[in-house]
Design a protein around this nucleic acid. Structure first.
Lengths: 254, 254
DNA sequence: CGTAGCTTTGAGTGTTATCAACTCTCGTGG
DNA sequence: CCACGAGAGTTGATAACACTCAAAGCTACG
């Protein structure tokens, strides 16, 4: 936890580029590439950057310079609506790629902010695209990641369009559980890095509604809540709830 | 409009591949490619397919074989929720590309259905990806189109998460106007190819709410409605409404 | 010209937002 | 070590917006 100047100097090469040593390889761009190709990708990746809580990675309208792979921490992206209203368009966890929505116009259509201290790898976009023409596996992986983002957004669309507040929150909790478990954490216990307000802005709910629902889930034995520390107690019922079951027949009979 | 067997034979080559003659070039994959590259793309595109109203282009879970460029007509994509509820994840107009959300898992995560008689160009995905490694401009265009889809989905997220029913419908009408005007139609007058139910399933509203809002917009002089025929009468007020203005100060003053 | 599906309109209800007050937590400084 | 304050979270009361159910009117197509 302590910072030592000497260490900084010694590790400078590994700080700059370390895809081949990164534990997130299997979730990130290098997935499916051979050693030589990973080395080529490494050369393109500029530097690792550390963000403190509430620091901005980029802002709405900024020119697209790079994509960012999350190494640790968590970020949120927010779209812009003039009046006070904000829409959180996504939460991003380690192994996920940020900024791909800027490729269309070469400008970021949303802002990205760190929810806690976070490390990101900066991948200059021009160089990445060029490299992708040379490494078919990289192009494939890039297209896959973009497609995954589309699928994720479409799932959110269904959530916001058709699900009740209860279903949305259950769905969101299950999503965090799933994504965090890939990182090796216990799938049923985690700490939310975002406020109730952020959750509400993501789920299209008022922060009070989020709070009330968490309390109710707790009362019903579905979860344990201590501030931002969450423990999922009944994954099956949560899964059912997220899937929209127990709606027709009033949730009483199974 | 009449079909002649002779013509079919004569035009078979142009039916199979005609990117270079297509009026939608500027909106579609060939955008930015030179003549030689368009010819190469032409070779890859398999055939044009005609769909009748309510015919399915692909279904949820189908393996990804091809992407589809819309030449004429209109389609909707719907996600699956078990109980009666449906979420329309998108409407697709000529010049737009369908199926890119399947690249992630090689399976279509939604179903695509024709809203009216439609023509699509079938672009085998494997061949397209391979070609994209050879033509950097094609890779670039493909990435741009996918990024655009992400941006569009994120705009929908804001709409569903933070906007009132009124704002959603205004926003949707403006979107149709914008997209149709690129095709050369009058930007203020068009025929909806989808039912009120579909619009509701897209906007996260009940069909009755859509109908009521259209009536109200009409009463307020914003639009003209005759069944599915829509004329936008006050683009400025609609634009303002879609942007969420006239909300704070009760819409009375300006 | 009849039927089936789509659309409009009405009445009543419910989920969720809003406003408001209170509590908790945690970090800071006396 | 405890008091204080600020931000975050909880809980309650009320109200609005949009849903649901219901019935009638329209349109289009055979």
């Amino acid at each position: 936890m302590q910072k030592r100047e000497a260490a900084t100097v010694i590790n400078i090469s590994s700080i700059k580029a370390a895809c081949k040593d990164c534990t997130l390889q299997e979730l990130c761009l290098p997935l499916g590439l051979n050693e030589v190709d990973v080395a080529a990708l490494d050369k393109v990746i500029k530097r690792r950057r550390t963000l403190k809580k509430s620091e901005m990675l980029y802002r709405f309208g900024d020119p697209l310079r790079a994509l960012y792979a999350i190494r640790s921490g968590a970020l949120k992206t927010t779209g812009l609506i003039e009046d006070g209203r904000a829409q959180v368009t996504g939460f991003y966890l380690p192994g996920e790629l940020l900024g791909i929505d800027a490729i269309n116009t070469d400008k970021h259509p949303c802002s990205a902010e760190a929810l806690e201290t976070s490390e990101v790898c900066e991948i200059p976009y021009g160089a990445l695209e060029e490299l992708a023409t040379k490494i078919p596996g990289l192009q494939h992986q890039l297209l896959r990641i973009m497609s995954r983002e589309i699928v994720r957004d479409e799932e959110m669309l269904m959530m916001l369009g058709r699900m009740s507040a209860e279903e949305r929150l259950a769905s969101c909790l299950m999503s965090f559980s799933r994504r965090l478990s890939r990182l090796g954490g216990a799938p049923a216990e985690f700490k939310l890095s975002m406020s109730r307000q952020d959750l509400g802005d993501y789920l299209g709910l008022a922060l009070e509604t989020v709070s009330r629902l968490l309390s109710r889930f707790h009362d019903e034995g579905l979860i344990e809540v201590h501030g931002r520390q969450i423990t999922l107690r009944d994954l099956n019922r949560l899964r059912n709830m997220a899937a929209g079951n127990g709606r027709e027949h009033n949730a009483s009979a199974q």
